[in-house]
């Protein structure tokens, strides 16, 4: 037996969810905006949800690890810890779900990052995609679209199970097709990590540095870039009050590795190498997975038109050629 819901019933389901939670889902951007057509935004009761969308400009990491997140407020000497809100992220794609899952691991080990883990614990994830639900990635509900406008619900947690009561899910005897999500095979190449580890002196980094603006867009739109800066923001007119924020940073920015008397990565080619090194060497070593879910955002939004798949391929091919010699 499969639990089925139709596209026409999802608005009603969301209305029920929105009574209890802040619900975020893909929304259409301002049509005058020159960037993406879709972005995650707050659900407004009664509006028609978008169930098919190509890609949002920012990944849903912005609800777990926001661009500017208040760590705490301060009033004179008193510190007030930030409290996470109960929220639902609705309509995540398979790869965005994977992005959140990996981000969870990043902020859980080796030291548990309380503000982010607290946010995750207060977040319900409801995914929608045409692929079969992932076996190893956690979610609360997963709606697999088996034909246009027809969704089969898969329950991934206790919370997810109780949510079924909020929508008009009906039991049907149907065969659910198995559709496996496939990443670019480059990302599963067993030599990938070693190829990047050994490629510091590859000419590709200085070639890329001639094209790359060093703007950091690729970091901001990446579901798995998570480097950050910490800043205090005093209230104007009441400087003893304010907030301490964690803000998105990018290792591509010139001052990223600057200390009081030295900059350890002055050259853009070294910063580009570090960007790849983090994703394909440091993260695999630390967590057992790479820092890429193959979502394509950095390709779409790079103003220099840099495509990581081409970089991966060239570094891998040259590494393998070197092995054969």
């Amino acid at each position: 037996m499969a639990k089925i819901i139709y596209d026409t019933q999802i608005g009603d389901f969301l209305d029920h969810l929105a009574e209890e939670y802040a619900v975020f889902l893909p929304t259409e951007n301002n049509p005058r905006s020159f960037s993406a057509q879709f972005k995650f935004g707050r659900y407004q009761k009664g509006t028609k949800p978008i169930l098919n969308y190509p890609l949002t400009v920012l990944p849903p990491k912005e609800f777990i690890f926001p661009a500017e997140d208040v760590l705490f407020k301060y009033q004179k000497e008193q510190i007030i810890e930030a409290k996470p809100q109960k929220q639902i992220i609705f309509g995540l794609s398979y790869d965005d779900l994977e992005g959140i899952e990996k981000l969870r691991k990043v902020f859980e080990v080796p030291v548990r990052d309380k503000p982010i883990v607290d946010k995750l614990e207060n977040t319900i994830l409801i995914a929608i995609d045409r692929y079969s639900p992932p076996g190893s990635i956690s979610f609360d509900l997963y709606l697999q679209e088996i034909e246009k406008g027809v969704f089969v619900a898969f329950v991934g947690s206790k919370k997810g199970k109780t949510l079924l009561g909020k929508g008009k899910f009906k039991d049907h005897k149907i065969q659910v097709p198995t559709i496996i999500f496939k990443k670019d095979p480059l990302l599963n190449d067993p030599n990938l990590s070693m190829a990047f580890k050994k490629s510091k002196d590859h000419p590709i980094w200085s070639e890329l540095s001639k094209k790359c603006f060093g703007c950091g867009i690729c970091s901001y739109v990446c579901p798995l870039c998570y480097c950050y800066d910490v800043k205090d923001k005093p209230e104007f007119g009441a400087e003893s009050c304010g907030v301490r924020c964690r803000t998105w940073d990018s290792c591509l920015l010139k001052n990223f590795a600057e200390t009081s008397n030295h900059n350890f990565r002055t050259e853009l080619k070294d910063r580009i190498y570090n960007w790849y090194f983090h994703k394909f060497v440091r993260m695999p070593k630390e967590f057992g997975f790479s820092g890429c879910v193959d979502c394509n955002r950095c390709v779409v939004y790079c103003p220099a038109g840099i495509n990581y798949r081409k970089v991966l391929k060239r570094v891998l091919d040259d590494y393998k050629k070197g092995l054969k010699k």
């Binding site: 510190i79 080796p110 548990r112 910490v230």
Partner: peptide
């Protein structure tokens, strides 16, 4: 596991 809340 060690937990960090970033509160000084």
């Amino acid at each position: 596991m060690k937990t960090e809340n970033y509160i000084p």
